[in-house]
């Protein structure tokens, strides 16, 4: 099975060109979220990392600020080739998607007064909001058995979505409070 790659069956670290090329393909093909595709490429197809090593990198990147997948590319590119490697991975990941998203944005701006286009984008935006709701519920489900964690999540939700408070003060209060409240469960 591709997922059992043990340390011994790992490939050699990629050269710069391969780093750029593989992240480029992940960027081009990564519809609706890049992370699953990146994991498949890194762990199962290219075998640059074992599953456990990948989880270790990912948990660091979720813990640090910034887009998770961008952090993963910086972290791995940097590990293998220093700053140049980080640049190659991030450029590969973002080059095509930036061009595509701006092209779509131009279509939206130009034709958004045309009724079918406007309604199409309205439907697209509604579906996109549903995807974010589903993601939130999915990552919330492991917290079901932890009332203190649920309380923290509910306070964050209320502060940002109902009271519309700015994020920085909310984080400055909630993060230390949450760490203190949940420390016994770590």
């Amino acid at each position: 099975m591709p997922d059992d790659s043990s340390e011994s069956s790992l490939s050699a670290p990629p050269r710069l060109g391969a780093l750029f090329g593989n992240f480029f393909m992940v960027g081009v093909l990564g519809f609706g979220g890049v992370l699953p595709l990146a994991r498949r490429m890194i762990v199962e197809q290219r075998r640059w990392l074992s599953p456990a090593e990948f989880n270790d990198v990912l948990s660091l990147c979720q813990f640090l600020p910034g887009a998770n997948i961008v952090n993963v590319s910086v972290s791995l590119g940097g590990r293998w080739h220093g700053p140049l490697g980080a640049l190659a991975a991030i450029a590969g990941l973002l080059a095509a998607p930036i061009g595509i998203v701006i092209a779509l944005g131009a279509v939206y701006l130009r034709y958004r007064d045309v009724a079918p286009v406007a309604h199409g984008f309205a439907g697209l935006a509604a579906a996109a909001s549903g995807l974010v709701l589903a993601t939130a519920l999915r990552i919330a489900s492991p917290l079901r058995t932890r009332p203190r964690a649920m309380l923290v999540a509910a306070v964050a939700l209320g502060a940002l979505a109902l009271l519309r408070l700015p994020m920085l003060p909310v984080l400055l209060v909630l993060v230390p409070a949450s760490i203190a409240l949940n420390r016994r469960e770590a």
């Binding site: 960027g27 081009v28 093909l29 990564g30 519809f31 609706g32 890049v34 887009a67 997948i69 961008v70 990941l93 973002l94 095509a96 998607p97 930036i98 595509i100 998203v101 779509l104 944005g105 939206y108 984008f121 697209l124 935006a125 579906a127 996109a128 909001s129 995807l131």
Partner: peptide, 9 residues
């Protein structure tokens, strides 16, 4: 929604 529908992060 565009950013979600397009490939990439």
């Amino acid at each position: 929604a565009l950013a979600q529908a397009a490939p990439g992060p």
